[in-house]
Design a protein around this nucleic acid. Structure first.
Lengths: 233, 233
DNA sequence: CGAACTGTTGAGAGGCTTCAAGCCTAGTGG
DNA sequence: CCACTAGGCTTGAAGCCTCTCAACAGTTCG
C-alpha cells in the first residue's frame, strides 16, 4: 500500500547531498545509509495519513508533496509543500504522536525512509545533527507563524497574490515564466483558505490586470511587482 | 530599558523545576545556574521586539506574556502566550535570525535569561536536552498548524468560542469559573484575527445564549459543552 | 464514448468590517 | 476632592467581500 514496486535509481537513493546529514562522520553516515529504505511514489499516492503511527521520517530526493490537515467537512488545508532536500513526517515522530497531517504526492516522487531508531541514534551521537534538526523545525515554525498572521489579517485577494509569489520562490519558473508546480484551482483554494470559485474569479481578475497569464493549470507570472503590490508586501 | 530594578525571589530564580532541564547532570545544571540572569518585568514591558538581535532565550518563572507579530497597519496578531515553565525567544535564537515576534508582559513576570553560548553548550553536552528542545519546538509547530487550519476554515464565531476554551485550558479558571487571564477586547480580537467590535458583539451573544457571563474583563465560563458545540469541536 | 472530475460564470445571501458616535472606568492633576 | 482626559467598551448603520448554490462547459481517462 505504501510503496510502489520499482526501485529508484541509485542517484535518487543517495542522501549525501542533504544539508541535514553534512556533519555526520563516516560511521554515522554508513549506518544511516544502511538503515534507510528508498522507494518510488506515484502521483496521487498517500504517504501517511492523519492518525497513522509513524515508524520513521522521510527524505525527499525527488518529486513534490502536499502536506495538509483535514478540517471541517473534510476540507483540506494545505500546510506546506515538500520537495527535493526536504524531510517530512518528522514532527509527529519527534513528538511521539500519531500523525496530525496527511502527505500526498503531487509530482512523482522518491522518498527514503529513515527509521525512528536511526534518528534517535543520530541525535545521541552527533550534536551538530541535533542542532540542524532544531533549526529545520524552527524555520518551519517561523513560516507557520507568519502564515497565521497573513490568513488572519489579509484579504483573500492579497493572500492569493502572496501565495503565487511564494510558489514562485519555492518552485521556480520554467523558461516561459510559468510556475513549475501544477495545482488544481481547488488546491490553490486550500492553500489560501478560501472557496474554489473565489480563486477562479480572482485569478481571472489578475489576468485582466495583466499580472499573470493562464493556460489551464499553467500559471505564467508576468508582473511580479504588481503581484507584490496586490499582496501588500 | 530591559530590566526592572528589584531582584526576584530565589524561588523565582530557580530553574530546577523546568522539565527542559530535568536531564542535566550536576555540572551542566551548575553552569546553567551560574550563567542565567533573572529579573522582574512589570506589566506592559516589552521584553524584545521584532527586529531585535537576541543574546539568549528566556525561561518564564512567573507571569504571563503575549507573543505577537505586527501585521498590516500595525495590527497585532497574537501567536501564543507564555507562562511559568515556558521558554520564549528561542526560535529566532536557534535560527540565528533577528526576532520576528514581539513579547510583552501581560501579568507581572519574572524571566531568567540564558545566554546563547550556554544553550549551545547544553546542546553539545547533553543529547537528551537537545531532544527535549526539539520536542518543545515540534509541539509548538503542531499548535501553529492546527491554528492555521482553524483560521482558514472556521468562522469568527467558531474561533472565538474555541479561543475561550483554549484560554480556559491554558490558564485555568478561578473558584468562580472565571478565566484567570485578563485580556482586553482588542487582545481577544488579535488572537481570533478579527475586529474588536466583532468580539464585543459575539461575546454578548454568547452571554445571551448563557454560555458565558461578563463582568468587565472577567469572563465566566458557564457552559463548556455549549461552547464546544459553537466552536465545532 | 461516457463518467467523473475540474473549471467557469451568475445570482443571492449573509457574515464581518468599517465608520461614527456615545458611554464608562480609571488614573491624573489642579 | 473633583473635574478632566484617555483609553477601553458598546451599539448602530451601511456596505462590501466572500461564500454558497446551481447550472453548465471543458478535460481527462478508462
Amino acid at each position: 500500500m505504501r510503496k510502489n514496486s520499482s526501485l529508484p535509481s541509485t542517484e535518487e537513493s543517495d542522501l549525501s547531498g542533504f544539508q541535514l546529514f553534512k556533519k555526520l562522520n563516516n560511521e554515522e553516515y554508513a549506518r544511516l545509509d544502511y538503515e534507510k529504505e528508498c522507494s518510488l511514489y506515484k502521483k496521487g499516492t498517500i504517504v501517511y495519513k492523519e492518525g497513522n503511527r509513524l515508524t520513521g521520517f522521510f527524505c525527499v530526493t525527488r518529486g513534490i508533496f502536499k502536506i495538509y490537515k483535514t478540517g471541517i467537512d473534510g476540507k483540506e488545508q494545505i500546510i506546506r509543500f515538500a520537495k527535493k532536500g526536504n524531510i517530512i513526517a518528522y514532527r509527529s515522530l519527534v513528538s511521539r504522536e500519531l500523525a496530525c497531517t496527511t502527505a500526498k504526492v503531487i509530482d512523482d516522487a522518491v522518498l527514503c525512509h529513515v527509521p525512528y531508531q536511526t534518528l534517535l541514534y543520530l541525535i545521541r551521537s552527533n550534536w551538530q545533527f541535533s542542532l540542524h534538526m532544531l533549526q529545520i523545525v524552527c524555520q518551519e515554525l517561523r513560516e507557520a507563524n507568519s502564515y497565521i498572521t497573513d490568513i488572519a489579517q489579509k484579504s483573500v485577494r492579497e493572500r492569493l497574490a502572496e501565495v503565487l509569489l511564494i510558489l514562485k520562490n519555492n518552485f521556480d519558473l520554467d523558461n516561459q515564466n510559468t510556475l513549475k508546480i501544477s495545482l488544481t484551482r481547488e488546491e490553490l483554494a486550500n492553500i489560501v483558505g478560501t472557496a474554489t470559485e473565489s480563486v477562479i474569479r480572482l485569478l481571472s481578475e489578475f489576468k485582466q490586470d495583466k499580472l499573470i497569464e493562464l493556460q489551464g493549470r499553467r500559471i505564467k507570472i508576468i508582473d511580479i511587482r504588481g503581484l507584490q503590490k496586490v499582496a501588500n508586501i
